[in-house]
């Protein structure tokens, strides 16, 4: 098998396994795999920036969190439960925030870009922790989960565990196809050029700043999708979701899985979700366990878990 076929086989097997979880319908597994899939969507959106556009952003949790808060606000204050309304509005909020933060932070390059994105994340974290109308550090519960009904009959009820799980699954499949198409399209090729050599790509006639900002906004919107799903799955949002720790953990997920591959961060997301869950059962210091795994992977698998898949699992 070629590396490409191996990846496709792995993704198909993974998708079938995820559907099998839905068929079994066990509450615990639906929750754990649902959470893992949300992390997958979140991680592949960051991979667009880190792995393809060469932008290491620590602001990514902000778009996840803002979208989650947008859903909470729309549900609790405006009694909007229809996902056909709340989903586009939450994504628009994330995209708008990404446009503003990206427009300002992309003026800086390299390590300064990382610092500016970190500063924005911290600002938002304190804003949401301190301001009472966002629930403060306790966060907010959703008064109702998104519900789509036509003529009084429920069509999609995210309060239903299996429905929510399948909705998340569909969102992951769509996000993956959207991003992999995007990367092969002219837009994605320009990003590849920017990663290779931005100055050269600019001299070929591409306004690289605009392409980077557009990538930042698209990645922010997809991160917003993950945040929306997270709030819908748990019915709860809290400020930690938009803090820099969340951004840092996500960056680790992408590096652990293998940046610039799209499927690598998916593997990383599953690996970290399970490490977190089972690590917490084994020891009170699961963060140390995760840290050790990350150090080992970075030292011995510089291209992440994806590097293993590409070499066919041989050393």
């Amino acid at each position: 098998m070629t590396a490409r076929q191996r990846v496709q086989a792995l993704l198909c097997a993974g998708a079938l396994a995820l559907l099998a979880v839905a068929a079994v319908g066990d509450r615990f597994w639906l929750q754990l795999f649902g959470k893992a899939m949300i992390t997958c969507i979140f991680a592949i959106s960051l991979d667009l920036l880190v792995g393809y556009a060469g932008l290491v952003s620590l602001a990514h949790a902000a778009f996840f969190g803002l979208s989650a808060y947008a859903l909470a606000g729309l549900t609790n204050r405006l009694q909007l439960v229809n996902p056909l309304l709340t989903l586009p509005l939450a994504l628009a909020a994330a995209a708008l925030a990404a446009l503003c933060i990206g427009w300002l932070s992309l003026r800086a390059a390299g390590v300064y870009f990382i610092m500016v994105t970190l500063a924005f994340t911290q600002m938002l974290f304190y804003l949401f922790s301190e301001a009472p109308w966002f629930g403060g550090s306790d966060g907010l519960y959703l008064s109702q989960k998104p519900l789509l009904s036509i003529l009084g009959r429920p069509l999609l009820d995210l309060g239903n565990r299996t429905a929510a799980y399948l909705f998340i699954f569909a969102a992951l499949v769509l996000s993956y196809f959207f991003l992999s198409r995007l990367l092969r399209a002219p837009f994605g090729r320009v990003l590849a050029g920017i990663r290779g050599n931005e100055q050269r790509t600019r001299a070929l006639g591409f306004s690289t700043a605009r392409y980077k900002l557009t990538a930042f906004v698209i990645a922010g919107a997809v991160a917003g999708l993950a945040g929306y799903l997270d709030a819908a799955l748990y019915g709860f949002v809290n400020p930690a979701e938009l803090g820099w720790r969340q951004s840092g953990l996500l960056l680790m997920t992408v590096l652990l899985g293998g940046r610039g591959t799209l499927y690598g961060p998916i593997l990383g997301a599953f690996l970290l979700t399970f490490l977190e869950h089972y690590g917490a059962r084994l020891t009170d210091h699961s963060s140390a366990l995760i840290g050790a795994v990350v150090i080992l992977v970075v030292l011995f698998l510089p291209r992440g878990v994806a590097g293993l898949v590409e070499r066919g699992g041989r050393g």
């Binding site: 198409r181 995007l182 092969r184 399209a185 002219p186 837009f187 994605g188 090729r189 320009v190 591409f206 605009r210 392409y211 557009t214």
Partner: peptide, 12 residues
């Protein structure tokens, strides 16, 4: 191309 802000059709 007039713009490379094209997101769907593969460049080849």
């Amino acid at each position: 191309l007039r713009s490379s802000m094209r997101f769907f059709r593969p460049s080849d």
